[in-house]
Design a protein around this nucleic acid. Structure first.
Length: 837
RNA sequence: GCGCGCAUAGCUCAGUGGUAGAGCGUUUCGUUGACAUCGAAAAGGCCCCAGGUUCAAUCCCUGGUGCGCGCACCA
């Protein structure tokens, strides 16, 4: 007999329980008690998708933590050697932006005012703070990760891994430097990868301009200053006579010689069917320029202003230039008409939402289609390796539909621009040294070595005046010996380092025991929104570096939405702070609200009432335990199935076997929501609503109650670790250690279909009587006589009379066998219910 | 334009080739010795529309409608 408080107050227990777990050392697989491990101690590994070091956790993080901790605890209980490796991501642009913004707000200083070193110092200071916030929030969620192995993408070890992979790829010819059209964010002052560009629908003016004999349409006249080529479709009858001819036309800066070329890229039905091409500021046009060898002239510079090529418009910002140029064109009578309501997608930066300028810049790229040697004989490309990893089934993606999405993206992948002109991140491990061979003995002062301080691309190679410049390049992990080496000022795309996460965190390039033991990892669990940014790149890079997959299964959860189905965002103010919810309802309730009722890959709505609902359930679990502890003489861990004395005992043990096996199966198959629902129904609808009530009537069930409590706490532990551990400690802790390392229920006895069927009859009889009382509005004090007649079930009902009468039916029961099939209930003289089983 | 989803009770969502499920909400009862964060009971569904396959379709197939998403394009 032990009495717990009437209601579970999560707040009173969670912190101290986490502390007990952490101090036990069991988060670290090396410390798991050997008796808890299955014979071979098979490893189970999850690398935590490292939260960005930008600030605090949101519900997306909470979701991933709930799901991962579920898997981790399930497998730990199942006797595996479980490693859940936590960490944080430096999140280059995102973090630098946050800090830059703060500095601007408080000091009105830009990063250029501070300088590289000082900015990095400030960012570091900031990151130390956010990291500790994130750590404490992970703990608040109950995440049972191994803190002793925590990593940060800018750690020394990880940085070394990054440099080493870069060098390896460079030596394999898979990383190259080239001038290609890239996405440039003028606000962040850096390039972005293709998938870091987002699109926003916007309404703009669309200008139809007289371009010699043609009319071309454009939304961006400011880029068209020096367009020298017009393209029409080869089959377009309207323009056939012009194809291949050259014209001198009046244009923005005066007369311009243009040429008309036919190519099928144009669509006859779109606009006027004719377009002029601007190779420097359009991806499509750039490709055409490559195809035909057209000249590429920069019109807009990295500062967002028109370049010297734009003549009298140079120095104007793109937006100002547009107005000025249209005015000029209007004066010259070259504007045919203007469509005021042109809808199109504006490309914007995924970090700052400002417009992206495509422009040709010299950058570092990863070549995804270039063949290289894999192993001794085989040749492949990065793209093929990454596709093969999933196609072959080495990696399974849940839900499966995302495999198609993955293929589609991977197949269309272009070379990946990896250099960024920001300062926060892994510096590109390349050093340059200028060698000047003067042919006419004149010094060469104008080497254009810049640190991106004006936002321009770094290291433009210039020659001229009879001076030959040779630039030595050194690519290596360490700075080369010798004088005059200057490191490339750019940093790497943040996703470059995170793509190595599963193995760089385990010690690679050192061949550590951890790497051998825990890689490939078992599961990658993350949101479907970063399948391209991260998941795809991890597969690509890990296949390349280790020639193995980074993980065997990818589980993708959906996005958390608000009650109206809207995306949660700071600007809408509809976000829910997980920490506030934990304070209010407990981490277990929050976790359940994100696990039950959700399906992988599908968005789900979350709101306070839902969390409150699961808080109620947690409290129910508490009270079930409370009742059992108050009832039994001595709480005891019971592992062996107790003897069943009554029908109800047989029934509940049978149901338990069934449910435990089903839950195990469903978790193993990554069906977490059905697993939780099954357990929820059993716990509340079966155990609490029926068996405990029966137990009150029959009594003498200490062993079975102890057994059910023991086992159900284990089954719930992956879902609701805190309350189950608290209850375990209250009930058995002093004798049996921690719940988190007990065994998972297994080898359960077979179900007894017969007793389940028989008890179902009893339940139906009870329900029918209650139903009848309710419908007939019979006062609860009034005792009624019930006569049951059945051939098949009279014996069993008769034997369970006590239960039927005891379960708040307020009846006096008479059972007779009248030789008829089915069950007939006659209540009083005049009321009859014909109840079919 | 290419591709992928979703459509089931008032709401949020599960689900299955054979009588349709849960939670919340609603209604009616209830101070039963675990729990009012509770208990008992009830009402409430052409399972989007039209065809097809099948003995049988909410489920499978085709088409449509509506909503959402990704990718590409965006002269």
């Amino acid at each position: 007999m032990k009495e717990l408080p009437k209601a579970y107050e999560a707040k009173q227990y969670e912190n101290s329980i986490y502390k007990i777990w952490e101090e036990s050392g069991f988060f670290n697989p090396d410390n798991l008690p050997s008796e808890a491990l299955a014979k071979d101690g098979e490893p189970f590994t999850i690398s935590l998708p490292p939260p960005n070091a930008t600030g605090t956790l949101h519900l997306g993080h909470a979701t991933m933590l709930a799901l991962q901790d579920l898997m981790v605890r399930f497998n730990r209980l199942g006797g595996k050697k479980v490693l859940w490796l936590p960490g944080t991501d430096h999140a280059a642009i995102a973090t630098q932006n946050v800090v830059e913004k703060k500095i601007w707000e408080t000091e009105q200083k830009s990063r250029f005012d501070l300088g590289r070193e000082e900015l990095l110092r400030r960012i570091h200071e900031f990151v130390v703070g956010t990291q500790s916030t994130i750590q404490s929030q992970l703990r608040a969620m109950g995440a049972s990760c191994d803190w002793s192995r925590e990593r940060y993408t800018l750690d020394e070890g990880l940085s070394k891994a990054v440099a080493q992979v870069f060098v390896k790829m460079y030596n394999d010819g898979l990383i190259y430097r080239g001038k290609r059209i890239v996405n440039w964010c003028t606000r962040c002052g850096t390039t972005l990868a293709d998938d870091e560009v987002e699109y926003k629908e916007s309404v703009n003016k669309f200008y139809y301009l007289k371009y010699g004999p043609l009319i071309i349409g454009t939304a961006r006249p400011e880029t068209k200053v020096l367009d020298k080529i017009a393209i029409v479709h080869p089959d377009d009858e309207r323009y056939k006579e012009y194809v291949g001819r050259e014209f001198i036309i009046p244009w923005i800066l005066g007369d311009l010689k243009i040429k008309v070329v036919a190519d099928k890229v144009t669509e006859m039905g779109t606009g006027t069917g004719a377009m002029s091409i601007t190779p420097a500021h359009s991806f499509v046009d750039f490709e055409l320029a490559q195809k035909y060898g057209f000249e590429v002239v920069d019109i807009i510079g990295p500062d967002g202003k028109l370049t010297a090529s734009a003549g009298k418009f140079s120095g104007l910002k793109a937006k100002e230039a547009r107005a000025a140029i249209i005015e000029e064109l209007q004066v010259k009578g070259l504007v045919d008409h203007i469509d005021e309501n042109y809808k199109h997608n504006l490309s914007i930066c995924y970090r700052c939402s400002m417009p992206i300028e495509p422009m040709p810049l010299e950058q570092w790229f990863v070549a995804v289609d270039k063949p290289f040697k894999v192993g001794w004989f085989k040749k492949s490309t990065l793209k093929k390796l990454a596709l093969e990893a999933v196609r072959s089934g080495q990696i399974k993606i849940i839900p499966e539909k995302f495999e198609k999405v993955y293929y589609n993206w991977m197949e269309n992948l272009h070379d990946w621009c990896i250099s960024r002109q920001i300062w926060f991140g892994h510096r590109i491990p390349v050093w340059y040294r200028e060698k000047v061979d003067s042919l006419n003995n004149s010094p060469q002062p104008s080497l254009n070595l810049r640190e991106g301080d004006d936002g321009s691309p770094s290291y433009t190679k210039r020659g001229g005046g009879g001076v030959k410049i040779d630039r030595e390049i050194y690519v290596g992990v360490e700075k080369p010996a010798g004088e005059g080496w200057v490191q490339d000022p750019d940093t790497l795309d943040t996703w470059f380092s995170s793509s190595l996460w599963t193995f760089s965190t385990l010690g690679w390039p050192n061949q550590t025991l951890d790497l051998k033991t825990f890689h490939p990892t078992s599961v990658l669990e993350t949101g479907y929104d970063i399948i391209f940014f991260w998941v795809a790149r991890m597969i690509l890079m890990t296949k390349y570096v280790l020639n193995e997959v980074p993980f065997k299964t990818v589980y993708l959860h959906g996005m958390v939405r608000d009650k109206q189905g809207k995306k949660m965002s700071k600007s809408l103010g509809n976000g829910i702070d997980p920490i506030v919810m934990i304070e209010k309802y407990g981490a277990d309730a929050l976790r359940l609200s994100m696990i039950i009722g959700t399906t992988p890959g599908n968005d789900f709505r979350l709101y306070e009432e839902k969390i409150a609902g699961y808080r109620n359930f947690v409290n129910k679990l508490w009270n079930i335990s409370r009742y059992i502890l108050m009832t039994v003489k001595e709480p005891q861990v019971v592992e062996n199935v107790p003897e069943a004395k009554t029908l109800a005992d047989k029934w509940i043990l049978s149901r338990f076997s069934f449910v435990a096996n089903l839950v195990t199966e469903k978790i193993t198959k990554f069906e977490f929501s059905p697993a939780g629902e099954t357990l929820y129904d059993f716990t509340w609808g079966t155990l609490a609503d029926w068996y405990l009530e029966v137990a009150k009537v029959e009594g003498g069930k200490d062993e079975i109650l102890n057994y059910l409590l023991t086992q159900i706490l284990k089954l719930w532990h992956p879902f609701t670790p805190f309350v189950t551990e608290v209850l375990w400690q209250e009930a058995f802790g002093d004798k049996s250690g921690l719940l988190m390392v007990q065994g998972w229920p297994k080898d359960l006895p077979a179900r007894s279909e017969q007793s389940e069927k028989e008890f179902k009859v009893i339940q139906d009889v009870v329900t029918t009587i209650r139903n009848f009382r309710s419908e007939q509005k019979i006062e609860k004090e009034r005792l009624i006589d019930v006569v049951l007649t059945s051939k098949e079930f009279s014996a069993i009902i008769n034997s369970q009379k006590l239960i039927i009468e005891g379960l708040y039916t307020k009846v006096k029961l008479l059972v007779v066998d009248v030789g008829q099939e089915g069950l007939f209930i006659k209540i009083n003289d005049d009321l009859k219910i014909n109840y079919k089983i």
